[in-house]
């Protein structure tokens, strides 16, 4: 009796068989879409984060206000609602983006706001005296940022940045709500259709884990490193090695 119940239950072997027969066309397609959305989204978030992070530490009140408004709006509203707007709101203004583009821009904007705060904290940790010293050497503000401040901040910025990358990967799953074709969408759609949800969620979880775990380890390692050798030479290639591993 118990055996039969197991065979017919949500985790019975027949359910697993069904899953593996459709594995490549359902899960792999979704997995690679998620990877693509996440990596492009991360690029956008990095660019936005650095630009607005620098803005929020500038002397110009206008730039600081712009950065503040961006961060507050995007950090204080749910990603689900933001994505919903991009999907159903923008077409009313003549902008029809594909789900893929919405995914990239949606998570990019959302995490850009967080990264901007990370960058700001990193920049603010550098003593004010260095700006004055640079200015006295004839550096412009942008040059000071590019050659002096940002390279030093990177050590402080990298660990929380990696955390943001990790959260970004996880958050691409909201695309499932707008038929985004990502891993979560395919898993959802397939499991409700075939009524095989138990194994589906285990496999889906593992696929996300495969992306996120290396990122999590990288964050941990960077954090240790930035604590151990706080005054370490800037631009050492350790970060590069860690990145290759991820």
């Amino acid at each position: 009796m118990m055996f039969r119940a197991f065979m017919d239950g949500p985790f019975g072997p027949s359910k697993w068989m069904t899953l593996f027969s459709d594995f490549s066309e359902i899960f792999l397609i979704g997995f690679f879409t998620t990877l693509k959305v996440a990596s492009l989204g991360l690029c956008l978030a990095l660019v936005l984060g650095i630009v607005f992070g620098v803005f929020s530490t500038s002397n110009s009140k206008i730039l600081r206000t712009i950065a503040r408004v961006y961060v507050e709006i995007w950090q204080n509203t749910p990603l689900v609602i933001q994505i919903f707007f991009l999907y159903n709101g923008l077409p009313r203004f003549g902008l029809v983006w594909s789900q893929f583009v919405i995914g990239v821009i949606g998570v990019g904007l959302y995490h850009g706001a967080y990264i901007s705060e990370v960058v700001r904290t990193g920049i603010e940790a550098i003593p004010k005296g260095q700006y004055e010293a640079a200015a006295s050497q004839g550096f412009t503000y942008l040059q000071t940022m590019r050659y002096i401040i940002l390279p030093q901040s990177i050590k402080i910025i990298l660990p929380p940045l990696t955390n943001q990358a990790l959260n970004l990967v996880k958050n691409t799953s909201v695309l499932a709500m707008i038929a985004g074709g990502d891993l979560m969408y395919h898993a959802d759609s397939w499991s409700t259709y075939k009524l095989v949800y138990g194994p589906t969620y285990i496999v889906t979880g593992m696929l996300y884990f495969v992306i996120c775990y290396p990122l999590s380890k990288l964050a941990e390692r960077l954090e240790k490193k930035s604590k151990e050798d706080a005054p370490a030479p800037v631009g050492s290639d350790d970060a590069g090695k860690g990145g290759a591993e991820a």
């Binding site: 979560m184 969620y201 996300y208 996120c212």
Partner: peptide, 18 residues
């Protein structure tokens, strides 16, 4: 900590509900 850090929240919401 690693397990929950590395899997999407949505997945756990579904798993627990089901």
């Amino acid at each position: 900590i690693e397990l929950f850090r590395c899997t999407p929240n949505l997945l756990w919401i579904l798993a627990i509900r089901f």
